[in-house]
Design a protein around this nucleic acid. Structure first.
Lengths: 191, 191
DNA sequence: CCCAGAAGGTACGATCATTAGCTTTAAAGC
DNA sequence: GCTTTAAAGCTAATGATCGTACCTTCTGGG
């Protein structure tokens, strides 16, 4: 089915993600991907439409991985425990892959169903975790946004080296998680 | 003092910021800045060391502007009011300049005193606002990180179009601010 | 009036993304 | 086994961009 049995789109994305992780988004070029693949740069266009398409595929993979990680973290937990678990999972993912922050910040192109759905899947996990709190739909949207903003903001700043001071970052995150759980609990009780 | 009385470093940064605001960080190139300045691209090197330097100058300006905006918002307010005011100011700034998020996320290069100090100035405002809560130093660091993470995360996601749903974003932010104020109050009372 | 230095220009090299068109090879059918 | 065919890869070439080297032209101070 494939002459030379060489590259595939997935393999190209693999290499690209590796470069992203090692060197950051600024260093991700088709030329470097081609070099790693042992192939001339134009050959990549047989597997990927262009650089923008490659970046989209990378984002898609990352968002899906994050959704999986959060789903895994949430299973078998409830309420505060579940919230803290997905917060930890989100942060751990970006600690392991600091250069992937962009993929989770970028707005999914409205017309890109696949990526929109992947992003939606992340929100779904949060939604599910919030269900026991008994929010109505609008409240659940507000709560999801707050949770996502706080956790993504923290993990993103940490990943980009934004916390310069020596004080223990783990403990800061504990404080944040406590604030979120208490805050969401309060929000669910206030009518 | 200046032949042709044309450009200055500040003017170059002005133009660059305009391009950044209009088209986003990906469209910011020396070639485009030169075009707007009515000058050949290499001439820019008389005012700016290179592209990285220009970006640094942009970041510096943005961070300083943000520090000013927060300082202004905080003056004459206390406690919860002050926190909500700087949160609103932070968000408003990124609403007006959505493409500037990067400047506020990027880690200041350790060796870059000027930029480090500007970043520090932002943190100083938050620190000052938290003073009436009576935190000890370590607590204040944790509290600052949480506040910054939540507000920056929210404003950043909003700026990048991350809140796709139709539900009122203003109200989501109200919920977040309430959570933060209550959370910080609790944190200051718990010993 | 002159001239030193700043501001600007031209020419050029390097790196990339991307397109066009050619070549090779593996797989599928006979 | 042999042929065909389409996928996979290559070379060549274009255009954008950053950056360097070096030349030209103002302009303001002496």
């Amino acid at each position: 089915m494939s002459p030379r049995a060489g590259l595939t789109t997935d393999a190209v994305v693999d290499l690209a993600v590796k470069i992203l992780d090692e060197a950051g988004p600024g260093e991700l070029t088709l030329a470097k991907v081609a070099e790693r693949a042992g192939v001339a740069a134009p050959s990549l266009y047989k597997h990927v439409k262009n650089l923008a398409d490659l970046k989209r595929l990378i984002d898609l993979r990352i968002v899906r991985e994050m959704a999986d990680a959060l789903r895994t973290a949430a299973t078998g937990r409830e309420r505060g425990d579940a919230i803290k678990a997905i917060a930890d999972a989100y942060r751990a993912y970006l600690q392991h892959h600091p250069h992937r922050t962009g993929a989770l910040t970028a707005a999914p192109d409205r017309a890109d169903d696949e990526l929109s759905q992947a992003t939606h899947a992340v929100a779904e996990v949060v939604f599910a975790v919030l269900r026991p709190f008994g929010f109505d739909h609008v409240q659940a949207v507000h709560a999801t946004r707050c949770l996502r903003a706080a956790v993504h903001g923290f993990a993103g700043l940490e990943a980009s080296g934004g916390f310069g001071r020596p004080e223990d970052v783990d403990e800061s995150f504990e404080v944040l998680k406590t604030m979120l759980v208490q805050g969401l609990t309060n929000y669910s009780e206030q009518k």
